[in-house]
Design a protein around this nucleic acid. Structure first.
Lengths: 167, 167
DNA sequence: ACCTGAACACCGTTCAAGT
DNA sequence: ACCTGAACACCGTTCAAGT
């Protein structure tokens, strides 16, 4: 199909994620998409985790943040919501981002975008935790419902509502 | 070894988690611990996810919360920190709890304990998200460091610090 | 009621060998 | 420089068959 590059690899990974979910983003599945042997991927990426990292970077690459207005509360809320919506928009992206962020294999842009308008590190940390936590709890619940599993309600508030408690 | 019960199953699962991490909590590995065939487990639990659910329930079963004092801020902070510390105490328990809570296969006690002392649902949700988010980001970073991987710092604040922004 | 054995359809990663 | 083929050491789940 197309030539294998880190960028093309993460694009294909994101497509598989959106269409089939995180479980189907396997090295073998990605390789099949390029019509190459699995082992060929290991020339372009160190391991699966670094592919996942590249995917998160790619996901956030298309988000552009408005320049700071001066009111940090508004700025922080706007940016956090923009990131939240981007993550929630793609299936399993919450789980993916959580894993990548935690292992530090990508997603640095996320923290930078928040840090730029945040008054201090603790607030940034709180927003990040809230973002990842809420997205994880919310998104997977959506899926479970889609699969017909009835779920004990965990999070029912919107991200915005919880956000306002911090900001 | 011992007879296979749901309870004994989750105890063994938690032991494997603590000693070898979530990746090593496989149905095959658990079966080996009981010296039975993998398929034997499926008579006792529906699937792996329900085993993980039982593990989280078992993890929180030993936590006992002090009765409400009347001051919800103190109560909520104390309980949240107690849960946080319990989760952080066992390797990979953050990731486990996040997954279980999200899929609703266990961990109902967690939300109940917070709800009992929380002024409203939004606050409970915020605390839960903060708890899961912070624990996930923090714990996996610890591990990555242990593996010698150098990680871009994500969360540096303590849970307590971020908690105080909400309460 | 409880367990075995075998099968099915997968995984991530490595590595000698090829072009 | 880039890729193949084969192997290694695993997965979760199902199901007929046994006791």
């Amino acid at each position: 199909m197309s030539t294998i590059t880190r960028h093309e690899l993460s694009r294909v990974g994101l497509r598989l994620l959106a269409e089939h979910g995180l479980a189907d983003v396997s090295m073998r599945r990605v390789a099949k998409e390029f019509d190459v042997a699995v082992s060929a991927l290991y020339w372009h990426v160190k391991d699966k985790q670094s592919l996942l990292g590249a995917m998160v970077d790619e996901l956030l690459a298309n988000v552009d943040f408005a320049p700071p207005t001066g009111d940090w509360r508004t700025d922080l809320a706007t940016r956090a919501e923009l990131i939240y919506d981007t993550i929630l928009h793609t299936r399993d992206a919450a789980e993916l981002t959580a894993s990548v962020l935690a292992l530090g294999t990508g997603g640095t842009k996320l923290r930078e975008a928040l840090d730029e308008v945040s008054p201090d590190a603790v607030t940034t940390d709180a927003i990040m935790s809230l973002l990842i936590g809420h997205a994880t709890l919310h998104q997977q619940r959506i899926q479970a419902q889609a699969l017909g599993i009835d779920v004990a309600p965990t999070t029912t508030s919107t991200f915005r509502q919880t956000l306002e408690l911090v900001i």
